[in-house]
Simulated assay, not measured.
Amino acid sequence: MQTVRFQLGAAIVFFGLLGNFCPASTRAQLQGDVPPPQQLTNAQTAPKAQPASSIAAPAGKKRLSKDFTLKGDSTWTDTGINVSPGEHVLVTAIGKLRYTDAKDDNGPEGLPRGFKDLLRILPFNAAGRGSLVGRIGDGDVAQPFLIGASHDVVSPISGHLSIGINQSDNDTGEGSYTVHIDVYSADPTSGATLAIAKSVTALPGIDNSLFGRIPRRIADKDGNPGDMVNFMILGPEAVMQRVFSAAGWVKVDADVKGTVLHGLIVSLSKESYLTMPMSQLYLFGRPQDYGWAHAEPISVVASRNHLRLWKAPFTVNGETL
């Protein structure tokens, strides 16, 4: 049985590994590093996606700058930039794309979501088609985030920074985006700290006597045994919810009545419906307290990654299990 002790930065890494994303193709043209400002001449001035004043510079030291051109037929591009926890990544972008079925061109903020987007599988389904998006870490598990025309993101983990266009491989646009990236070192004076995942061989209170208090199998309503209980989470309940949400998992609807209402609301809002309820199974004499799912629109009906969590009726050294 595995045990996970929650510290926000570390837990995001752990639960990011539970996700299931398909890596997309990578095609882009690297324009090259931007020389430091004092080395630029009028002939050498590097193109900027937006004025520097559009985003306030972080307090940390700028350690690198790069410019890229993303062609309209590309999806994901590995920038070759490795970022560390706590570093600020400032991204600005300009440019236009045009999709054959769109009435107008769109910029890095993407097209407004429409009902057709409910049928599309995009890298980041919460944003419009054609928007500029990013991710940090392995493409199979990293959770994409919206960049748009400009964004300042603080990296929660170490990993490769990738940028891309929010579109599927068989539905690409014409045009390009010019993207400028500045990376600032973590500010040591900010007082903010990010926990780094560490491997431990033991935790106080996690021993055979604890395992003896936990049923080995879950059961259905009639008491028929089901799957084995195969991991534990130790830490605050609110942090657990925040970590799952940050890693792209969604809390499923509790019942069919809630499903109908929620499905109607998100559809009218032109959002993808991913919170289809799962069957109730029992541990500690009651159904699951949380059902979490990770899936793509459309395919959620056929298959999705999911898990159930039960809050133990006891604590471990004062911490929630």
Rank of each mutant, 00 (worst) to 15 (best):
T3S: 05
I12C: 00
L17Q: 15
L18A: 11
N20T: 06
C22Q: 12
P23M: 11
T26L: 04
Q29G: 04
G32H: 11
P47W: 14
P47A: 08
Q50H: 09
P51C: 01
A52Y: 09
K61A: 10
L64I: 13
F68K: 09
S74M: 15
T77A: 11
G80A: 02
N82E: 10
L90M: 05
T92R: 11
G95N: 11
K103V: 01
K103R: 10
G107Y: 06
R113T: 02
G114N: 07
K116E: 05
L118E: 08
F124S: 01
S131G: 04
L132S: 05
I136R: 00
S150Y: 07
I157A: 00
I163H: 09
Q167F: 10
N170K: 05
S176D: 12
D182V: 03
Y184F: 12
S185N: 06
T201G: 00
A202S: 15
A202I: 08
S209H: 12
I214P: 10
P215I: 08
I218M: 07
A219W: 00
D220K: 09
D220Y: 09
D220S: 07
G223C: 11
N224M: 06
G226K: 15
D227M: 13
F231A: 10
I233R: 04
G235R: 05
G235W: 06
P236Y: 02
A238M: 04
V243S: 07
S245P: 00
V250P: 04
A254L: 12
D255M: 01
G263W: 12
V266E: 12
L268N: 05
S269T: 01
K270Y: 10
S279Q: 15
Q280N: 12
L281A: 09
Y282L: 05
Y282S: 03
G285P: 13
P287L: 08
A295G: 04
E296V: 04
E296W: 11
P297H: 07
S299Y: 12
N305F: 14
A312L: 03
P313M: 02
T315L: 07
N317L: 11
L321W: 13
L321M: 13
